[in-house]
Each structure stands twice: as structure tokens, then as C-alpha cells.
Amino acid sequence: MGRSPRMLQNYVPILIFLGVATGIGLVLLALGFLFGSGQKDAEKLSPYECGFEPFEDSRMKFDVRYYLVAILFIIFDLEIAFLFPWAVSLDSIGGFGLIAMAIFLTLLVVGFIYEWKKGALEWD
């Protein structure tokens, strides 16, 4: 047991805070639905499209580049997740840790240059 209950206790306020934040959001929305009254009709409830009748469902096809950005994000975010523990323990891993991370970063930079040259980062 030793340390773990003490450590977990530090996280209790976070749980409470998440609850309080949810509560504030819910109360605000509830107040809005309580006080905000009005007549609803079909025109008011239709999606806004500059006064036109909406032509089609708006969940339409979108550019594949958005998808590409999402995939690249996952790769780089994982890279950052790897860098975090390394950065925190920098003073105890010395030159070996530095070189190991240099090799890892070099591999990723090569990949980054490749996708740059391939035009994955172009928006025109």
C-alpha cells in the first residue's frame, strides 16, 4: 500500500472539479431552457442557409486532406508522448539517453521531410 492511497487522494479534487464543471454547464443550460421561451415553427427550426431551402443533407463529403492531417496528428502526438518521460528524466539518463532520442527523432524527421516533399502538407 505505502504510497498509492496518498497519491490517489491528490486526484480526488480533480474528480470533484470535473463534477462541479459538469454541474455548472448543466445548470446554465437548464436555466436557459427554463427562461428562454418562444414560439417554434418549421421555418425557425430549419438549418440556416442564407434564406434558401437547404438543398441536401449537410453531412457531405469533405476534403481528404482533413483526414490526412488527422493521421499525421496521431503520429506526431505519439512522438510527443514518447518525448515527455524522456524530457523529465533528462538529468539521470545522460549522454546515452540523448543519443537514443537523437536516433528516434532523426527517424521521425526523415519521415516528416518525406511527407513534406510528397506534398501532404500542401493546402492550395
Binding site: P47, Y48, E49, P54, D57, S58, R59, M60, F62, D63, R65, Y66, V69, A70
Partner: peptide, 17 residues
């Protein structure tokens, strides 16, 4: 996405990326 309006959809895509 939930709004189901084209403007909202475009805004969400842009902002997400």
C-alpha cells in the same frame, strides 16, 4: 456535426484540423 448545417460543418472541419 450535430447542427446539420453546412456552415457549421465547414467551421468544425476547419477548426478540428
Amino acid at each position: 456535426w450535430a447542427t446539420n448545417s453546412k456552415y457549421a460543418f465547414l467551421g468544425a472541419m476547419r477548426s478540428a484540423a
